[in-house]
């Protein structure tokens, strides 16, 4: 039996203290221990990006991390995106995905959203080439990416206006 280790992780502003097995993936911890199932798992080998979450504000693949490595850290998942201040209203990026039809089955979407949050912070006015570059580590099998690119452009514009 694997060793059990006590961890405390802040997820979407809530502190969770749990005892977990050392081999438990962060993705499984979020999905199955905390039942935050918005983070999806498409490959578990770091290629598809579906499992992307924010670790202290940086996009990381939760399938490539162990839960114990998140001890003492701050994590944001798709469930924590809509600001509580806005009474659960969609984040501008989420709204843009809807308006630009940037999702079909929606399985890859949380990973794209999480990848894009830090990207837009660092590139408030991105070119299409920059957007495509930023998206190239996430796989979507439904949309052909075109409308995801459009959604990012729309979100950037909106976020610039409201900033």
């Amino acid at each position: 039996m694997a060793e059990r280790i006590q961890i405390s992780v802040r997820v979407n502003h809530t502190l969770f203290e749990r005892e977990v097995e050392s081999q438990l993936l962060l993705s499984d911890f979020l999905r199955h221990e905390l039942e935050l199932t918005g983070t999806h798992v498409g490959c578990e080998h770091g290629v598809c990006g579906a499992c992307t979450v924010l670790l202290n504000g940086e996009a990381v693949r939760s399938c490539l991390m162990l839960a114990v490595q998140a001890d003492g850290q701050e994590i944001t998942t798709v469930e924590g995106m809509a600001s509580p201040a806005l009474a659960g209203a969609l984040h501008p990026l989420q709204a843009a995905f809807k308006e630009a039809h940037g999702l079909q089955c929606g399985f890859c979407t949380p990973g794209f959203l999480m990848t894009l949050i830090p990207f837009l912070k660092n590139h408030p006015d991105p070119t299409e080439a920059e957007i495509r570059q930023a998206l190239s580590g996430n796989i979507c099998r439904c949309t052909g990416y075109q409308n995801i690119v459009k959604a990012v452009q729309l979100a950037a514009k909106r976020m610039a206006q409201s900033a």
């Binding site: 935050l36 199932t37 918005g38 809509a82 809807k98 399985f107």
Partner: peptide, 21 residues
């Protein structure tokens, strides 16, 4: 027409099979 299903998918509320506990 914009899609009815999007909100659930965009906020992580939509139920996929592996989400059943």
């Amino acid at each position: 027409v914009l899609r009815n299903e999007d909100e659930r998918l965009l906020t992580g509320q939509a139920l996929f099979t592996d989400d059943v506990h």
